[in-house]
Computed example of a mutant assay.
Amino acid sequence: MKLSLIPRASVAALALVAAMAPAVAAQASGTPARPGPAVSSAAVNVRLLGEKIVPRGLTFQDTTVGGLSGIDRDPCTGQYVVISDDRSNLQPARFYTAKIRVDGAGVHSVDFTGTHPFLQPDGSVYPPASAGDGKVVDPEEVRVDPLSCRYWWAQEGDRPTSPGQPLIQPSIQFAGRSGAYHGQLPLPPNYVYTTGDRGLRRNKAVEAITFGDKNRVLTSAVEGPLLQDGPEPTVEHGALVRVTRQNRKGDVLGQFAYPLERIFAESDPSSPWPADTGVPSILAFPGDPGRYLVLERTWVAGSGYKIRVYDATTRGATEVRGVDSLAGRKIVPMRKKLVADFDKLGLSTVDNTEGMTWGPTLPNGEHTLVLVSDDNFADDGVTQVVALGIRTS
């Protein structure tokens, strides 16, 4: 997601946080709901390994490095693939490859090694929105297919805000390693923009995808609640966002409601910008179907960013693919536990973190989690690579 302002958030001392999030009681059928199971009997322990700030305005192969909103480790090379959410305004919509050296002592270097534009079916690059031809894309997430090492990438499309603007549907596309178009995954029927009061909210579409269940399943999450699923979060209440499991042909295997946290503070009344929150990334646990790390990113004018990572599961959650509207319905949402709050990790800054991936496993058995922030190409934005060590015991 592209934000217009990037204030700084406060930084606190290192700490681990783990707490069950409150559940929404009951089932969509209207029958009494049973409490969902705990996420896992195993505790997740997290420690900060380190961080690295990429120089602002860095140029690489005649492109501006920025807007990095998704990241994945390439099992074929050991390098990382990072997607930029530039809507072809600066240079054509694109991705980068990078060597990121991470170990138990920190993030030692971030070196970009290549970049390619994503191509349309006819082999051309995507035009900027100013072209007015309705072909603009909003890249947000990238995953490397563990079976083919091709790239799967999600883009949010666009819902018009005024007459005459084109409606551009979101998509999950397949690309070759040089960006060539190889097709796309059929999306669930409710993952669309409409001209009415149903479907996706603008800038709150498909922004999170991950492979799981032995690489047979692609799970996606929309960033915010569907229009018919109720209002967006406020300081008083959270919201439910849809998480969908599909096979590689696009068949929907299940859809569930993830409980998004309420806004953590009131906005500065002098700001013209409302608070913004959502799910920009989701990451499957290896070998544990239905279990995910979920990234929540919130920005509040005058308070800055709140970045949190949760351990969540679909087990015991109500299947909602056949539920048109979640508003007022009694369901059991996905259960979650707070794993990391960036305010409490001792980072130099907390910014617009939107991408995460599993990194290498350390000699002591810890998994590494590598995250990247989107600087919005703003003068006060930060491209920050953070590495965490995660141990399940």
Rank of each mutant, 00 (worst) to 15 (best):
L14T: 12
L16C: 09
R34N: 05
S40R: 03
S40A: 11
A42Q: 14
A43K: 09
R47F: 06
E51S: 14
K52L: 12
G57E: 06
L58C: 07
S69W: 14
P75Y: 09
V82L: 15
I83C: 11
N89S: 15
Q91T: 15
A93F: 01
R94H: 15
F95G: 02
A98E: 00
D111G: 05
F112V: 03
L119Q: 04
D133R: 02
V137W: 00
E156L: 05
R159M: 00
P160H: 00
I172F: 08
G176T: 04
S178W: 02
A180T: 10
Y181G: 01
Q184L: 05
R202W: 02
E207T: 11
K214H: 13
L218W: 07
A221Y: 08
L226D: 01
L227F: 01
G238S: 05
A239N: 06
R242V: 08
A257R: 05
P269W: 03
W273V: 15
P274V: 06
D276M: 10
V279E: 09
R291N: 09
W299S: 12
V300M: 04
G302N: 05
G304F: 02
Y305F: 15
V309L: 13
Y310E: 08
A312K: 03
T314S: 08
V320N: 03
V323K: 00
D324L: 07
L326P: 04
G328Y: 07
K330Q: 13
D343K: 05
D343A: 11
G346S: 08
D351Y: 08
N364I: 06
H367I: 07
L371T: 13
L371G: 09
F377W: 12
D379E: 14
V382H: 14
V386N: 03
